[in-house]
């Protein structure tokens, strides 16, 4: 069994618990293992790099070094912000031996730069065929607006596996699950998650723009792959509704949860009850959809 190092980051142990749950479920079903990086620390996003280059690098590199020490060659970081920070740290130390030495000194352990950082959607994309084969309850009739936000589309040095202006990884996944992937305008617009607490007015405005665009495209739900985007779009939705005097009622669902649903897993086990905007309508729509003939068995792994 292929086993990846796993860096959940702070969110997946707190407000994004359901992302953690559903990723583990889906990886098990794909025959992929996940092992948490030993004694990991916060990657520092998004406050550290705003104030100190060294601190930002040191926090990220300690995580990578912990993985390297345990012999983990590849780590999966589901949080787009963590993913971006870790991969960027790799890029920076790879180019500057002096910097690597300095950072190694700060964190009190060596890092050779041998740990690859990957995002969970990348892994799904790689296993798209097996994923499609494991679908037992296609998400037929469901219209999904895939939202990538900033950090799953940019910068090019980090997200070198998708297009910056019109990324398609999640859309392809959504399609392979039997749902309809919508072409919409706000795939890569920033949701302002880092201001969700400090400048809520800005975050709420940006959230409203994104939700409005998804609604206009006819979405039943928005698919995300970043805990910050999810939290912001979900928790600030009611405020955005009040601000724009409208209703969106758009559940913000992790791509891993959609995978779980398509694999016929229990909604609760996937943490679908943990969102502020409930997914009941989506679940109703799914259960109302006719089950295709010759129901497929889950692929043995």
């Amino acid at each position: 069994m292929m086993e990846y190092g796993y860096y959940p980051g702070c969110s997946l142990h707190g407000t994004a618990k359901e992302f953690d749950l559903s990723i583990k479920e889906s990886f098990t079903s794909l025959g992929l293992g996940l092992k948490e990086v030993e004694d990991w620390n916060c990657c520092g996003a998004s406050s550290a790099h705003e104030t100190s280059e060294e601190l930002a690098l040191a926090l990220a590199v300690r995580i990578l070094s912990q993985a390297e020490k345990a012999g983990q060659k590849t780590i999966v970081a589901p949080c787009a912000a963590c993913y971006s920070r870790l991969k960027m740290a790799n890029v920076e130390v790879a180019h500057d031996a002096g910097l690597r030495k300095r950072i190694s000194h700060i964190i009190g352990q060596d890092y050779q730069g041998n740990v690859a950082v990957r995002h969970v959607t990348e892994i799904y994309k790689e296993n798209k065929d097996r994923l499609a084969a494991s679908v037992t309850k296609p998400l037929a009739g469901l219209k999904i607006a895939s939202y990538y936000g900033c950090l799953l589309a940019r910068p090019k040095a980090v997200v070198d596996w998708d297009d910056a202006e019109n990324p398609t990884t999640m859309d392809e996944l959504v399609t392979s699950l039997g749902a309809q992937a919508l072409d919409w305008s706000h795939k890569t617009e920033c949701c302002g998650a880092s201001f969700s607490i400090s400048r809520g007015d800005i975050a709420v405005r940006l959230v409203g723009d994104i939700l409005g665009a998804a609604k206009l495209a006819g979405a039943d739900a928005i698919a995300v792959a970043c805990p910050l985007c999810q939290a912001n779009l979900d928790m600030r939705q009611s405020a955005a509704e009040r601000r724009n005097k409208t209703t969106y009622k758009l559940p913000i669902i992790y791509i891993s949860q959609l995978i779980g649903l398509a694999q016929g897993k229990d909604a609760k086990a996937l943490g679908l009850d943990k969102h502020m905007v409930g997914a009941e309508k989506v679940l109703e729509k799914l259960s109302a959809a006719p089950i295709p003939h010759g129901e497929k068995k889950p692929v043995a792994v």
Partner: peptide, 9 residues
């Protein structure tokens, strides 16, 4: 600045 990198891209 949200560091969303739209400008850089």
């Amino acid at each position: 600045c949200l560091s969303c990198e739209t400008c850089s891209t």
